[in-house]
Amino acid sequence: MGDRVLCTVDGGVADVRLNRPAKLNALDSEMFAALAETGEALRAERGLRAVVLSGEGRSFCAGLDTSAFGAMAQGREWRPAGREPADPGAPSRGQRAVLAFRDLPVPVIAAVRGHALGGGLQLALGADIRIAAPGAVFAVLEVRWGLVPDMVGTQLLPRLVGPDVAAELIFTGRRVDAAEAHRIGLVTRIADDPLAAAHELAAEIAARSPDAVRAAKELLAITDYAAGLAAERAAFARLAGSPNQREAAAASLARRAPRFADPEEQP
């Protein structure tokens, strides 16, 4: 993954940081590849409980590198480097950079300061929870470049803010400050130090039963109502009486810290 994305894991919590601060963590070919590779590597990380996603420097991610738009203005096609999938129904490289985190089995928390624009906003949408600094700015900028969001944004944004608000933001490309982003449901909450707040929340999640947390994330991703009800029943039946569920109950009754096993370690 090179140096475009930094990743460390401590206490079951992965700290993932976009690492191009001089360019406000703008997305280039190397960044797209590094994001996808990092997400895929974390999927295989033993004992992973939560992920905190942020950007080095003063911005989360300012979107696609302007050199790409320069190429487009000259009539040259620009795509993230590397082979696109042969199957037209498979995710593109840009989509995979978001889905690599969206599809992780553990919660992902985005800590946003500065800019979350265009592809940067779509990357934040791939997180389960977004914590923003008071001065953060959000925008779906693609329309200003004659484009549409193509990193899962058209699918994820309406689920957060509703179809009409999503349409307004996508059609106009207008910028939204942190206060409005919180009001419309684009961010979960505002914190003076979003990175510290994200790690505090991640540590709290990491202390819960990993089986229950992973099952909850699966359930929250289901959009079909009937399928969701059936999945709820199945998940509850699967968890009830399991080793980690018994440990959670025993620890709560004894008012002690639980000692959970990683899902892979359970018989």
Results as ranks from 00 to 15, higher is better:
residue 60 F to Q: 08
residue 61 C to T: 00
residue 61 C to Q: 00
residue 62 A to W: 02
residue 64 L to P: 00
residue 64 L to C: 12
residue 65 D to H: 09
residue 66 T to D: 10
residue 67 S to G: 05
residue 72 M to D: 04
residue 73 A to N: 08
residue 73 A to R: 12
residue 74 Q to E: 15
residue 75 G to M: 02
residue 76 R to H: 10
residue 77 E to Q: 14
residue 77 E to D: 13
residue 79 R to W: 11
residue 79 R to I: 08
residue 80 P to E: 11
residue 83 R to A: 11
residue 84 E to G: 07
residue 85 P to C: 05
residue 88 P to W: 08
residue 88 P to E: 06
residue 90 A to G: 09
residue 92 S to T: 15
residue 93 R to A: 12
residue 93 R to Q: 14
residue 94 G to C: 14
residue 100 A to I: 12
residue 100 A to K: 10
residue 101 F to D: 15
residue 101 F to G: 15
residue 102 R to T: 11
residue 105 P to M: 01
residue 105 P to N: 03
residue 106 V to A: 11
residue 109 I to K: 06
residue 109 I to L: 15
residue 110 A to C: 07
residue 111 A to Q: 02
residue 113 R to Q: 14
residue 115 H to S: 11
residue 117 L to R: 04
residue 118 G to T: 09
residue 120 G to H: 09
residue 120 G to C: 07
residue 121 L to V: 00
residue 124 A to V: 09
residue 125 L to I: 03
residue 126 G to L: 05
residue 129 I to Q: 08
residue 129 I to E: 13
residue 129 I to K: 08
residue 130 R to H: 03
residue 131 I to N: 06
residue 131 I to E: 06
residue 132 A to G: 05
residue 133 A to M: 03
residue 134 P to W: 01
residue 136 A to R: 11
residue 139 A to G: 06
residue 139 A to W: 02
residue 141 L to Y: 00
residue 144 R to V: 09
residue 146 G to W: 13
residue 146 G to E: 11
residue 147 L to S: 11
residue 147 L to E: 15
